Computed example of a mutant assay.
Amino acid sequence: MKLTKAQYEEIAGFISTLKPTRQCMKKLKERFPHLSQSTLLSIFSQEYQKLIKRTHARHHDPDTLEFYYRWYLHDIEADPTVPVLLNLAYEVGFSPALIARMVLERFLQDQDGQPHTKHVLNSMLREPSLIPDAILANQVQQCIINDCCNGPLVDCIKHAIGHEHEVLLREKLMEKNLGFLDEDQLRLKGYDKTPDFILEVPAAVDGQVINWIESKASFGNESSHCMYLQEQFWSYWNRFGPGLVIYWYGFIEELDCNQERGILLKDTFPTDIVTLSS
């Protein structure tokens, strides 16, 4: 689905009034019933990541971290059955998974007298049963499960969704009898930065020639699209010529302004795609 910049800003403005709980998706759907759940979740996640970046330094200040840790110790001693870390995250307006990581890191330092490596922390967050404290392990697990934008569970879901849409795109290309090379095949040929698929024979969409197609299982907003342009799309254009980007969950329509320069945006696989040899 395509949205105007004004429509997107209306959604982003509404998101800024919500606390990052799973119930917020219900409120979003009620406010914008014409948008799919997947599109709303993608937009919410992107806007929430902006908030996390803006407030990251404040929450990771040593004094603030120590305050959070003492908060946890105090409340967990009063009642270890209460979701203390989750409530703490909601109270301060920060990611539950990141709050859990901060407190876990501080706990381990308290236990061993020295910081632990990222590998150890990531392992414990992926598998909380590795945490050497059953109560904290349960608290961390609650945060991971209830964080809809951050954490190892969300990372796995995003990876699976991205792979699912790449498979869908592959199937669409095969249905159209379009020959292609995928990322793995291109890397074997020595390419480092590659789109998802290179067409062996150029095709045309809306009268525009394309040589490659990139799948994005997300909504294309201004900040993410500008980043992709700089880090990926223009590199693809330099190496392989013009191409097509599919934002499966929609994009801001004003961003589709580079067609003449060789980058076309769509929110679904185009039905009118034809090979130049047909």
Rank of each mutant, 00 (worst) to 15 (best):
E127N: 13
G262L: 06
P62M: 03
L51C: 01
N138D: 14
C24R: 08
R22G: 03
K19H: 11
Y48K: 09
K216Q: 15
Q208S: 06
K19P: 02
A100R: 03
K27Y: 10
C24F: 06
T194A: 14
P132V: 01
V274W: 02
L41R: 08
H165N: 11
P152Y: 06
L104V: 02
S42D: 15
D267I: 00
L41S: 10
L264S: 02
T21F: 05
P62W: 01
I52N: 03
A100F: 03
Y69L: 08
Y48M: 14
T39C: 15
R239Y: 06
S218H: 10
E164D: 15
W71Q: 07
Y249A: 05
F67K: 09
T194N: 11
F233S: 04
I161C: 07
E253Q: 13
D267Q: 06
G93W: 10
W234G: 01
A217Q: 08
T117G: 03
L186H: 11
L244E: 04
T21V: 11
Q232K: 13
W212H: 06
E200D: 15
D147F: 01
I144Q: 11
F219N: 09
R54V: 03
F240K: 05
E231T: 14
A217S: 14
S42R: 11
L244N: 02
I246N: 08
C149E: 10
A78C: 02
G262A: 08
P270V: 08
Q23P: 00
D155Q: 14
N238F: 10
R239E: 13
S278C: 02
V92F: 07
I157C: 06
L199V: 04
Y249T: 01
D206N: 10
D272K: 04
L188F: 11
F107M: 10
R54L: 10
C148M: 12
M25Y: 12
